[in-house]
Computed example of a mutant assay.
Amino acid sequence: MARADRLARIDADRIAYETEYRAALIAALETTAKGRWGLFGHQGKKGETSASVATVAALISLGETIDDLRATLGLEPFSLHAAFVAARGPVRSDAVGEPKQAQAWLDRLNQQKTETL
């Protein structure tokens, strides 16, 4: 029974962390959609600000914590975090800018939210 209780606590923590991650990512995306670059790292170090570096570091840390909890529970890695990490980094010069990319992410997240209701 102790193992089941421990796994239940880990799962509750995972759910709370995933909710926190989603809220933090949405807040960061909203800031980026308003014109603040750095979240996706399209311009490398040149586009970084202390705020964007801190935001990305917090998201990465929280995402890794979630993935560790998911591994303990035998679950797949956190797909939202994996998608965010994959979307980061330099892009071709003709790629959409970070504000448009952030807005597309927000639109997709809002659509997923309404589909699950």
Rank of each mutant, 00 (worst) to 15 (best):
S79M: 12
V53R: 06
A71Y: 13
L62A: 01
R108Q: 12
T72R: 05
L80T: 08
W105L: 12
A33N: 09
I60L: 02
R36Y: 00
V85E: 02
M1I: 10
T114H: 03
H42R: 03
Q43H: 06
A4N: 08
Q111M: 03
R6I: 01
G44Y: 06
E48L: 06
W37E: 07
E30G: 03
A8Q: 06
L69H: 11
R9F: 07
R3I: 12
V96T: 15
T32K: 10
S93W: 15
A2E: 15
I60N: 06
Q103G: 11
A51N: 02
K45A: 06
I10S: 05
R70F: 15
L59A: 10
L73E: 13
L75T: 08
L75C: 12
D107H: 13
T32Q: 04
D94I: 08
Q43N: 01
Y17D: 13
I10A: 08
D11R: 05
Q112W: 04
G74T: 02
Q111Y: 03
A4H: 02
A71T: 15
R6D: 10
R14D: 15
D67E: 03
A16N: 14
A102W: 05
L75E: 06
T49W: 00
A71W: 10
S93F: 15
R3Q: 14
E48G: 04
D94V: 10
P99K: 01
V53W: 06
S52N: 01
T72H: 06
A33Y: 02
W37D: 05
K100W: 14
H81C: 11
A87M: 02
P99L: 04
H81A: 05
A4P: 05
V56T: 07
A28S: 08
A2R: 12
A86W: 09
W105K: 09
E64T: 09
T19F: 04
L62N: 00
S50P: 13
A16C: 13
H81G: 09
E64C: 02
E115L: 13
I66S: 04
A104L: 14
G35R: 07
A95D: 15
D5H: 08
E76I: 00
L106Y: 06
Y21G: 00
I66N: 11
R14V: 15
G97H: 10
Q101M: 10
T65D: 07
A71Q: 15
T32M: 09
E64Y: 04
A54W: 00
A51M: 07
K46L: 06
L106W: 12
G41I: 11
L69Q: 11
I66M: 07
R92P: 13
G63Y: 03
F84A: 10
I10F: 05
D13T: 12
L25D: 08
L39T: 05
R9D: 05
T31H: 02
L109D: 13
L29F: 00
I66T: 02
D11M: 11
A102M: 09
Q103I: 07
Q43L: 03
L29A: 11
E76A: 15
A2W: 11
R6T: 06
G38F: 02
A4C: 05
E115P: 01
A57R: 13
R14K: 03
H81D: 04
A33S: 08
A83V: 12
R14A: 15
R14G: 15
E48W: 00
Q103R: 14
V85N: 09
P77K: 10
